[in-house]
Each structure stands twice: as structure tokens, then as C-alpha cells.
Simulated assay, not measured.
Amino acid sequence: MEITLRINGEDKKFVQEFVPLKLYRKALEVEKYAQSEKMDEEELFDKRLNLIVEAFEKQFTKDELENGLNAIKHQEVFYNIIGVGILGYRPLEEQEDLGKYLKELVENESQSTSESTK
């Protein structure tokens, strides 16, 4: 996993190649909270920030993460680190490719079905 943060006006890249299994459980807890009826956006945001700081073994602080991560793509970064890096979900690019493939498959199937009924 990797993340780039702007710290003191400079972009710094942080890499993490090992994530302890205990973080898998913590990530599941955070995502379960995200789906719960009592979910609070600010609390969820804090839980995700804390999880990312812990996943990178505190190479940066929560404050550095919050101030150094570009808000424009933060959801994608959160997904790539927590979803893909820790929980093992498919990367967004693969999901898009799979979606396109399934759409084409359905379209081709419906064309074949309509041609065979003529």
C-alpha cells in the first residue's frame, strides 16, 4: 500500500508492505460501523483516519494525514487502503472492467435471444 501526503509543502510518499492481521478485524469493525444505523459521518471519518495511521505504523500522524491528503480524491484513497489493501476488495479499475464485461455479456445474450426468436 502507498499514500502520498503533502507535509510542509512537500509531497511525501509512504509505503507499507506488511499489514498485521489484527488490522483486518479493525477494518471490518470500521466498515460494519459504516453500514450501521447509528453511523455518524464525523466519527466514521475519524475511525478511518486512525485505521490508516495504524496501518502505516504511525509513519505519519493523524493530523498530517488529515492536513496532507487531497480532499478531492480522499474517498478513493480510503477505499484503496482500507478496502483493497486491508480487506482485499477488488481495485476500482477491476470493478469498472468487470462491470463493462458484464454489461457487454448481457447485451450480447439479449441480442442472441432476440435473434433466435425471429
Rank of each mutant, 00 (worst) to 15 (best):
F14I: 01
L69W: 01
E64L: 07
D46S: 06
S112Y: 13
D11N: 15
Y89T: 11
G68E: 09
S36M: 06
S112L: 15
F18H: 10
V77L: 07
L44D: 02
E37H: 07
K32H: 06
E37P: 06
G9S: 14
K38V: 06
E93H: 11
V19D: 04
S110C: 08
P91S: 13
L69G: 12
D97N: 15
Y79A: 04
L44H: 04
T117D: 12
V84D: 09
I86D: 12
T117V: 15
E104A: 09
K103E: 01
V19P: 02
L65T: 03
L44W: 01
K118T: 02
R6I: 15
H74C: 10
M1N: 07
V15W: 04
E76L: 07
E107T: 05
I72L: 07
I72N: 13
I7G: 10
K13F: 04
E64M: 06
K100Q: 11
K13Q: 10
E2W: 00
F18E: 14
E107Y: 02
L65N: 01
E93Y: 09
K12M: 11
K62A: 13
Q75V: 15
L92I: 15
E31F: 03
R90K: 14
A27C: 06
M1C: 03
E54R: 02
E31G: 05
E37L: 10
P20M: 07
N8C: 10
I82E: 06
S116F: 13
Q35Y: 05
E115L: 12
K38R: 08
Q95I: 14
E107N: 05
Y33A: 06
S112G: 15
I82N: 04
E76D: 13
K38L: 07
A71W: 09
K26T: 00
D46F: 00
D97Q: 14
A34E: 06
E2M: 01
K103P: 02
D97G: 11
F14Y: 07
E17R: 07
E109T: 12
I3N: 04
Y101P: 07
I72T: 07
K103C: 02
K62C: 11
K73M: 11
E31W: 03
D63I: 05
F78Y: 12
N50P: 00
R48C: 01
F78G: 12
L23S: 05
K103A: 04
E54L: 01
Q111R: 13
N108C: 08
Q111T: 13
E17L: 05
E29Y: 08
L5S: 08
